[in-house]
Amino acid sequence: MDGASTSQILQYLITGITIGSIYAMVAIGFNIIYNVTDIINFAQGEFVMLGGMSMVLFHVILGIPIIIAFLFTIILVTLVGLIVDRFAIRPIRQPSVLTLIIATIAVSILLKGIAMFAWGKDPLDLPAFSGRTPIQLFGAVIQPQYLWVIGLLVVTVLILTFFFEKTIIGKAMRACADNPDAASLVGINVKKMIMLSFSLSAGIGAIAGIVITPISLMEYDRGAMLAIKGFSAVILGGLGSFPGAIVGGLLIGIIESLGAGLISSGYKDAFALIVLLGVLFFKPSGLLGNIEISKIKRF
């Protein structure tokens, strides 16, 4: 291990938190769908990819102002989420967990293929929202776009909290999550809630995609990597738990970043997974997960 200065460690943390925020956003998307349907949607990463690519299309290629392009992108990807549910998930007649997983994998392959046709194979770039002049902080630097990433995560979490706690639809979705049969008995349209969950998590994926593209560029096949990181975050935090998703995402981002900075960058992806395995062996339901939730469903 190399000796690292405080400003270096600060830099590792800043980068880790930023990347972790993206993982957290992907993880929240996983959880929204999981809570209503028990499905892990492996196409979640493709929603993020589509978010970034559509934003490039609207803002850079078509020249639409950033705010409107932002809205267009979210609407477009939300629609994709809706279509995915309507034409890929709902028609499955005897859903077992493995069948549903394969269906979402099929969707992710399809979306990837379509994106390759629509946007080509080269990475695309999006201008940063507020320029690229870095901010100095105790010897570390912060790209303005980092603040956008973290800020949008906070805003997303606040809006979601309000939605699930205060609105009727949000409460209905939570009821579906707790017990779909009981929910449909009290007159909640479970099918609509599932559709809503897909749209909602597609929309959140799109936000993640839009905000990360100025940092990392975006190309058609980036979805899988983001999905794996998001899924790791979900499991680390505990399936179905929103605070867990945030904690899990941030932790994985920070571990990767510190692991790369302090130990070995070649093995950095392995560190987060080793920590994850360690946590699971001691606490099989993740850090903040409910042991009951982790028991349901066989394959």
Binding site: Y34, F231, I235, L239, L276, L280, P284, S285, S294
Partner: peptide
């Protein structure tokens, strides 16, 4: 000992 998606993640990590 892990169930469902947790088992999927553990084997995936491995």
């Amino acid at each position: 000992k892990l169930k469902g998606h947790y088992l999927a993640m553990a084997t995936l990590a491995f």
